[in-house]
Structures are given as C-alpha cells and as structure tokens.
C-alpha cells in the first residue's frame, strides 16, 4: 500500500527514524524513500570499496534485501544510515572475496575510475580542487588493498575501529595500524602534490 501521491512526496521530508519505523512495520513506500535518500552514498561507497561499477550496484541491491529483512531488529531507527553503510561495507568485502576466488575474473572491466576521463568540472574555481581529488584517487588506487578498505570504511562510512575490525575480520589494533599507514602514505603523496 503506497498511499496517495501527496503522501508519497511527504515521505521525502520526514526524518530517517520515522521512515525506518514505518519500514519496520512493513511500509514499502517508506523503505523505498530511505533507499532513494541514501542510495547515492551507498553506491559511492560500494564503488570505492569494490572498484567495480557492476559489483557496486549488486552490493546496493543485496544491502537493501538484507536491510528489509533485518529492519525490525534495528534498535535505534535514527541510526539507519550508518547501519545501511555497515551492511554495504560487509557486502562489498564479500564481493571482493568472491572475485578473488575466481582468478580469471579478476581483471575488472568496469573499473570505477577507468572511464572517468575528462570530468564535468567547473573550469574555474573547482579546477584545482577537482584535480587534487583526482590525485587522491590515484594515490588511493596505489595503496595495498587492506589499507584502502580501512581508509574508505573510516572516511566514507565513518565507522569505528571496532566496526571496521568486524567488517574486515581483523583486530581493532590492525585497523588502527593500517589506517595510519594509509593516511601517512596518502598525506605524503598529497603534500608533494601541493
């Protein structure tokens, strides 16, 4: 049951907690409003983690399936965004593991930054920032995979060391170490670039 179009649009204005509560009650329209609201962030994170456009969309879809099933167990509905991103993190890591198990598929054909080419950048004020962002992408791509994962889960998903440790199945101390290594390398590269 989706209600009137006016009510549908109204859902775009209400806070996450309310949508999550409705979705837990079985309101598919509220769940879809949540998916639309956080979809771009989920997709962006999955792309950075998997490095593949197609895998990223699979990850978003799997995340939403899992979220719908588990939503009534979510203790703090206001925290639904972080909860969705943690699922995105786990599902992305699953995809990377699966891909590694199929060595012949390891060359990703739809790599995230491969086709970016000339970007639709603002020619003036954003040019410098835009190119610094491009430089950061290149530096990230050169990091060891485990370090890159820690960095993305921290900076994109704002996860704690403990949460990242759970997602990656390593210790919080390893997360702290890898994150530091990643940042030091990236900061050095970017300082040279300045």
């Amino acid at each position: 049951m989706t209600g009137s179009p006016a009510a549908q649009h109204q859902l775009d204005l209400v806070p996450d907690a309310l949508l999550a509560g409705r979705a837990a009650d079985g309101d598919t329209a509220a769940f879809e409003a949540l998916a639309r609201r956080h979809g771009p962030l989920m997709r962006a994170t999955a792309r950075r983690l998997t490095g593949s456009l197609a895998d990223a969309d699979d990850v978003v879809q799997e995340t939403l399936v899992q979220a719908w099933k588990q939503l009534d167990g979510l203790r703090d509905p206001a925290a639904v965004r972080g909860w969705l991103l943690r699922i995105v993190g786990s599902r992305s890591i699953d995809h990377l593991r699966k891909r590694r198990n199929h060595a012949d598929l390891s060359g990703v054909e739809d790599a995230v930054d491969a086709s970016s080419g000339p970007k639709h950048e603002d020619p003036e004020s954003n040019a410098l920032n835009g190119s610094r962002v491009e430089a950061l992408k290149a530096a990230l791509a050169k990091l060891p995979e485990e370090q890159r994962r820690c960095w993305v889960l921290k900076e994109f998903n704002d996860q704690s060391y403990e949460e990242i440790a759970q997602t990656l199945n390593i210790s919080p101390a390893s997360v702290r170490g890898r994150l530091a290594r990643a940042r030091i390398t990236l900061a050095r590269t970017m300082e040279e670039w300045r």
């Binding site: 609201r37 920032n129 900076e155 970017m190």
Partner: peptide
C-alpha cells in the same frame, strides 16, 4: 581528511540521484 570529504562528495555526485 578534508580532501577525503571532497572525494566522497565527488563520488556521491557521480553516483547520481536516488
């Protein structure tokens, strides 16, 4: 960290609208 936020914004913009 600031640059990381800019990358995130740029990636979210590239991801398109929900």
């Amino acid at each position: 960290s600031v640059l990381g936020s800019e990358l995130l914004s740029s990636d979210v913009a590239d991801a398109g609208s929900g």
